[in-house]
Amino acid sequence: MDKLKITIQVMVPPYSYQDLDTALAIADAALDRGHEVGIFLFADSILSTFSKVKPVRMDRNIPVKMQEMIANKGLRVDICGICMDYRGVRPEDAIPGASPSGLPELAALVASSDRFINLMA
């Protein structure tokens, strides 16, 4: 299979819902198959990039997992900037490698991606 550009959009908050876990699992498998993969975080899903998230010890740390996938596997993470402003998350609060972004970037991703899936609200 040729290398594809795959974008996954997430809309709902981490921990309350499974969507971030699902998106990371799909992204991980797609990266392992050699694809270029991005996650676009929209609305409350942006909270998953908040570096100060501190789950209980037995639970997974979604921001850390995402940060590792960015650093080690080349996952691209775009964060809706207006959604960050709405929720008081500053760019410096986000995990390294996750970029504040916006609808023009989402449009570019939709236009350029070979596959686009949205985990709907």
Binding site: A43, G102, L103, P104, L106, A107, V110, A111, A121
Partner: peptide, 26 residues
Amino acid sequence: YQAPGGTIWPNEGFRTAFGMYAEEDL
């Protein structure tokens, strides 16, 4: 598919659609 008032999704759905005009090919 969800109602305005109860959720933000109608607003966000339209806003996202309008955002697509940033790309000529959409």
